[in-house]
């Protein structure tokens, strides 16, 4: 009974951290640029496909250290794509209405799906978990896949690093001040264009990292981008859009609600997430935490 309970809670946490990995970059970019980046899921997908290709250069399964290196390589590559997209697209979206950024990033999502299909084909692919993480951890009756624990760890690590950056470092504090009042920040001599670029590149790099880390989590297909993006939207809005701490809390809350709902009310799979999002926003339209944190 206790093992059951623990299993469901841990499953909720795995989901939560997987979605947080995706949502962190999304909420960062929104916090600074006020662009709701529809294509974010597309770049998570590209990160995952890159991980697949890098792994297949070798013999398939790699060790944990190599896997982390590979995820970082995905982050760097997708971050570089972010730099290009910032130059070509996002820079031009500043003078137009907010909603135009929706259609522009939706277009980029379509382009990323098309690109993935052209390069990797339409077939389903699958990536092995790193060596040493293929099995499970046993604790009496309780079983947890090692890779699932790794996803939880990765989510927490990314949260701690981001939080430390934004709260404790000078560059992070500058980011926050730009998010609050770009005009005032520019008066104070801050190069806000540089800050915008840094935010976009960091956001895309987080997408690439999420893709690399989550590549073994589920099957890969050109539709993968759309699967993650709506859940990530729910998480960042419940957390308070632009707020990294909020997204972290919201992911955990929604993950637990969804996990217990799914197991204990089996006749309604997939409903709990949306009910929870709708109810929470009704009572706290600005989200759990507001402002950039």
């Amino acid at each position: 009974m206790l093992a059951d309970f623990l299993l469901i809670a841990m499953n909720g946490l795995v989901w939560a951290m997987a979605i947080f990995l995706v949502a962190s970059g999304l909420t960062l970019v929104f916090g600074i640029l006020h662009i709701l980046n529809f294509s974010h899921g597309g770049f998570v997908m590209i990160g995952a496909y890159l991980a697949y290709s890098i792994m297949n250069l070798g013999s398939g399964a790699v060790g944990i250290v190599a896997f982390l290196g590979l995820a970082l390589a995905c982050a760097v590559t997708v971050g570089a794509m972010g730099f290009v997209i910032d130059r070509v697209v996002f820079k031009r979206l500043k003078d137009v209405d907010d909603s135009y950024s929706l259609i522009a990033t939706y277009a980029i999502l379509l382009l990323s799906e098309g690109a993935v299909k052209t390069i990797w084909g339409p077939n389903f692919l699958s990536v092995y978990p790193p060596k040493g993480l293929g099995g499970a951890v046993f604790l009496g009756d309780f079983i947890m896949p090692a890779y699932a624990l790794f996803v939880i760890g990765a989510g927490i690590a990314v949260f701690l690093v981001l939080d430390f950056w934004l709260q404790r470092t000078a560059s992070g504090k500058i980011m926050k001040s730009v998010a609050l009042d770009p005009w005032m920040a520019s008066l104070l001599g801050i190069n806000i264009n540089l800050i915008f670029t840094v935010a976009v590149v960091a956001g895309f790099a987080l997408a690439g990292l999420a893709g690399g880390v989550l590549a073994p989590n589920q099957s890969l297909s050109p539709m993968m981008g759309g699967t993650y993006i709506i859940q990530a939207f729910g998480v960042i809005i419940v957390g308070g859009i632009g707020n990294v701490r909020g997204a972290f809390l919201a992911a955990i809350l929604l993950g637990l609600i969804d996990a217990f709902g799914t197991v204990y009310v089996p006749s309604l799979p997939g409903v709990f997430f949306f009910v929870a999002v709708a109810v929470i926003i009704l009572f706290r339209p600005q989200g759990l935490l507001s402002g950039v944190r």
Binding site: W15, Q218, T227, A259, T262
Partner: peptide
């Protein structure tokens, strides 16, 4: 979906 662990638990 992307996560089937809850159904696996069931």
């Amino acid at each position: 979906g992307s996560d089937y662990r809850n159904y696996i638990a069931s």
